[in-house]
Computed example of a mutant assay.
Amino acid sequence: MTQTFTLRRDVAAQHVDVAPGGEIVLRGKLVCSTDASVIDAATTTWPAGAPGGASVDSGGLVDLEQGGFHMTSRDPATHEVHAIATGDPAPACALAGVEAPCLPLRLLPLARSRLQTAQELGSCLHGGITVEVRDAVLPPVAPAAVPYVQGAAVLLGASVLASIGWVVQRRRARSPFGRLLDLAKRTRAKLRAADPVVAAPLVPAVEAALGALKRRRVDAASTEGKRVAEVLRRVELRLDASAVEARAGREQQAADELVREIESALEAVDEVDGARRGGA
């Protein structure tokens, strides 16, 4: 049996009645009337007219990880997000005084990125997001349906194996090796999107570090592994700072162009006024 409800925006967090391993699907979007940005559960899509141009940010309306969920997929085009309840501690739920798992809202961080208050952002948002909770309870089966149930059992077994694989993969990702490997991959991905001048001297070093990790030449839990992690974090911070500077530069360029246009218009008005006074 599937339950569906609308995500509330008048509370800090909303409890979801789902057991660990259960899946939820969030569908829908909110559109801000002031800047035309589109916010769904896990992403923010900026229009072409926004400072820095069209882009998609990874932060959406809901902080799934802090609410006790692990996001398995998201689609910024269809605005559909799938997540699984982990059963892990959910700090945001505890902070809001809500039973875990829950769906904590990110209105404050989203508002701050726009230099607004949460109330101002909330007033510009129009639309809605629905939450679908998928229940794994199976109804009684008629004898004639046994062959179909057997097929479903095979699929269910495959699903269980996939869930076990996901748990194993998740535990590996939480290990020192998994965290270090994720850091290296994340840094490499940021290098690919970075300014070529900044990325050129860093790419070979990061690729070498990633190769050494995959070959287990460095123990992630050792002192040397921690040194590698520290260097990669420094690279990531440098890339993040470079990206912020680049975006600020694009915003400044856009602002300069607007200012020049307005100043040109004002000069034209002054010339017209001067001509009128001279004619008088």
Rank of each mutant, 00 (worst) to 15 (best):
R234V: 13
D135I: 05
V11K: 09
Q253V: 06
A208D: 13
F5R: 15
Q252I: 12
L105F: 07
L161V: 06
V231E: 10
I24G: 02
G122V: 04
V206Q: 12
R106Q: 12
G165M: 01
K214F: 04
T2N: 07
H82W: 07
A94C: 00
V133R: 00
T72V: 15
V269H: 11
R238E: 03
I24W: 02
T4N: 09
D35W: 04
G157D: 14
V244S: 06
G278D: 14
A118G: 12
P91I: 00
R276L: 15
E257M: 04
A162P: 03
V137Y: 12
G211P: 05
R233Y: 09
H15C: 14
V244K: 14
S37R: 12
S123K: 13
A85P: 09
V198Q: 04
D195H: 06
F69A: 06
R192K: 14
A145W: 10
L64M: 11
P201R: 14
L232D: 00
G151V: 11
T44C: 08
C93W: 00
L110F: 13
A200S: 08
P104E: 05
P89K: 12
M1S: 13
A280T: 06
L105Y: 03
K29P: 02
P204F: 07
A152E: 08
A173R: 14
E251A: 15
V38M: 11
V259W: 09
A100V: 05
